[in-house]
Amino acid sequence: MTQVVRVKPMMPPGHVRTPIYLRGKIGTIERSLGEFPNPEDLAYGRPATAKTLHRVRFTMAEVWGAIAENPDDTLDAEIYEHWLEPADAT
């Protein structure tokens, strides 16, 4: 997995653990946490596929743009691999 990633801007209904305020935002993988059963399966009592979970760090400037309280402060969140795509090129 590349170090610079974008959270996919998907908007599916149902139980997901990717907050909407981070979708489409670009961050850096702070650390990878190994594989965990996908909560999108577990929530419905289904057998869960394993997904690698990453801690992604975003700047407040990236998340909130001009309204950021302090652009250099950061926001870390855990995002499963299927919600991330490489963003190195941008």
Partner: peptide
Amino acid sequence: YFTVDGLRRVLE
């Protein structure tokens, strides 16, 4: 019988 994700799904 269920997971914390199932708990959250119903709460949501």
